[in-house]
Design a binder for these strands. Structure first.
Length: 554
RNA sequence: GCGCCUGUAGCUCAGUUGGAUAGAGCAACGGACUUCUAAUCCGUAGGCCGGGGGUUCGAAUCCCUCCAGGCGCGCCA
């Protein structure tokens, strides 16, 4: 619809130019938008205002000229007007809107889907927490955002894969192994102090206990290095299983679990270093190997191989990102905690050095989550192991509420997550506001069935029955859904969908209280019932993009 | 010191990549269930969009500057 109006205005512009009324050679890139205010028609264009300057004419005069040359279909456009500083407002015939209902019926579960991705391969990499401990609430936010972004991109026509990158090499892993080793010895009655810099969480004890259960006392006399190596593998596998389980409980499923260790084992880290060396982008200094990242927009050059011969984390990450593109992904989305934001220019410099387009990488920074309980901060200390895990949060407040809270806010703003509020099944918790609408509609539909009124097909309803301002408003709102999904996909901002759903549902509840769906007039009831079902479809589609369930009953 | 993010109603947040009179929800106050789910609705009140400059027909949105909060600035991961 917007495109059509845009095209028609473009034609009017050309016509004006031909007649010599307008002089501008190029038509400016103008917008056709749904006005915020209902009194401003159904669509509004700002073309005249944009032309005002170069034409040196008042925008209203230009608008007048444009409108007079506008050839529009009387079956679509009811009327046009010039308003405000020079907007051209379009009022559309109500049957135009009614067609939306047909679209929804036809598309069903894929209403809102599009093909802007054109099947392009795109990867969303998220969570990727070190397997050194259970996931906490911050990871949960990343998980919710990543999963929703992946869903939305898939809906927008991309071929999406979700991937978890496992940092299973390095000091942190060693420390994990050591932590388990010491707890193991302690459990077997050896008197050893637990060093400060290791992982103190209770889960380490649990792992140590399992080691005893499965392997008995055989590490008591074994060589420490060997024992730690084994326990590192044992513990990370154990923790990773836990992480995968927690994510499943959160409704997040990854296609790929990608191991950093494998990048080393199959030689890709070495290969990528060779590749950069050959291009002359690495240099030696102070016994280390450096990447000239400042030539590609970073503020410092970065070490790739340390003077002790070990590679840095950055070295793996170069290899990993090269690997992503080697696998044929045209676009890669990385979702990181905002505390890693300093890392962005570094990784961007890699892509630049590889001569990949700027938009091949999109980094979403997910801001910090502060956990509260009834307004008071919950102490979170990873060191001491005193923290609330994601699993505990899911168990306490539920998957749907947790996800919705994460997804109603922009991810680049800090977030207070209040367990007390999240748990409450009340007005303070908007997830239920949306879900309740879905359940309510289900209830109306089954009530209608009891009365012998089945859900009609579009062809069977009399659309002119849907004539109240509330009904027209609802239909217009439904028509915006595909556009909202597109915007959400384009910007990788899932919260736009959450916001939309809240608005839609607000209109629905209001309508419900004002009008009865099931009346004693059959045509009216039938048309309204149909409208309700259209809302239900959109709600379900929207909620499922967010990974939130659509209950039949509440 | 440098860089990134944030600052919008008492609270939590939207604001469609510069548009018309800045919007929701919660909390507060006043109303609405013999009628399809009151986890709902209706109404009232609440604002120098952090401050100040600039850009233009037009700024919460873009630029500069200052203030406040958060996070980064490792041969850690």
């Amino acid at each position: 619809m917007k495109e059509l109006v845009k095209k028609k205005l473009g034609e009017a512009f050309l016509e004006c130019r031909k007649e010599g009324i307008l002089q501008s050679k190029n038509m400016p890139e103008f917008a056709v938008e749904v006005p915020r205010n209902r009194g401003h028609g159904d669509l509004a264009a700002n073309l005249a205002m944009l032309l005002a300057k170069q034409e040196k004419k008042p925008p209203k005069e230009i608008a007048k000229a444009l409108i007079s040359r506008l050839t529009h279909d009387r079956n679509i456009v009811e009327k046009t007007e010039i308003a405000g500083p020079g907007f051209i407002n379009f009022y559309l015939k109500s049957n135009v809107w009614h067609n939306v209902l047909k679209d929804i019926e036809k598309a069903g579960a894929s209403y809102g889907a599009s093909d802007i991705g054109k099947g392009e391969k795109i990867m969303v990499e998220f969570v990727s927490a070190n397997p050194t401990g259970p996931l906490h609430i911050g990871h949960g936010r990343g998980a919710a955002v990543g999963d929703a972004v992946a869903n939305i991109l898939g809906f927008a026509g991309y071929s999406v894969e979700k991937e978890y990158y496992i940092n299973d090499v390095g000091n942190q892993m060693q420390n994990l192994g050591k932590s388990v080793y010491i707890r193991y010895l302690q459990l077997l009655k050896q008197d050893i102090v637990f060093p400060d810099d290791l992982y103190r969480g209770d889960y380490i004890f649990d792992i140590a206990k399992e080691v005893i259960l499965k392997h008995g006392k055989r590490f008591l006399d074994a060589d420490e290095d060997e024992a730690v190596t084994f326990l590192t593998g044992f513990a990370s596998k154990h923790i990773l299983n836990g992480i995968a389980g927690d994510l499943e409980a959160f409704g997040v499923h990854f296609e790929n679990w990608f191991s950093e260790k494998e990048l080393f084992d199959n030689g890709e880290v070495g290969e990528s270093i060779e590749h950069f060396k050959k291009k002359g982008l690495f240099y030696d200094k102070d016994n280390a190997l450096w990447f000239q990242s400042t030539s590609f927009g970073d503020d410092k050059d970065r070490v790739i191989v340390k003077d002790n011969g070990n590679t840095t984390y950055f070295a793996s990450d170069i290899a990993y990102h090269m690997n992503k593109f080697k696998r044929g992904f045209k676009k890669v989305i990385d979702i990181w905690g905002a505390d890693h934001h300093g890392y962005v220019p570094r990784i961007r410099s890699v892509l630049k050095a590889l001569e990949l387009p700027e938009d091949a990488l999109h980094v979403i920074l997910v801001q910090l989550v502060s956990l509260l309980r009834d307004g008071h901060p919950v102490a979170m200390s990873t060191r001491s192991g005193e923290f609330v895990t994601l699993k505990e949060v899911i168990d306490e407040v539920g998957k749907d509420a947790a996800r919705f809270i994460f997804l109603t806010r922009r991810s680049d703003a800090q977030l207070d997550f209040d367990l007390g509020v999240a748990k409450k099944q009340s007005d303070e918790n908007p997830v239920y506001y949306v879900q309740y609408a879905h359940a309510r509609i289900c209830s109306i539909i089954s009530f209608a069935e009891e009365k012998g009124l089945d859900l009609p097909a579009f062809s069977a309803i009399k659309t002119e029955q849907l004539s109240t301002p509330e009904e027209t408003g609802l239909i217009k709102k439904l028509s915006q859904f595909p556009w909202v999904v597109e915007g959400s996909a384009r910007t990788c901002e899932p919260h736009r969908i959450a916001t939309y759903l809240l608005e839609l549902v607000g209109q629905f509840h209001s309508y419900y209280n004002k009008h009865r769906v099931i009346t004693d007039q059959q045509d009216l009831s039938s048309a309204r019932l149909y409208l309700m079902n259209s809302i239900k479809t959109v709600l379900k589609n929207g909620l499922s993009l967010l990974g939130v369930s659509s209950p039949q009953k509440m």
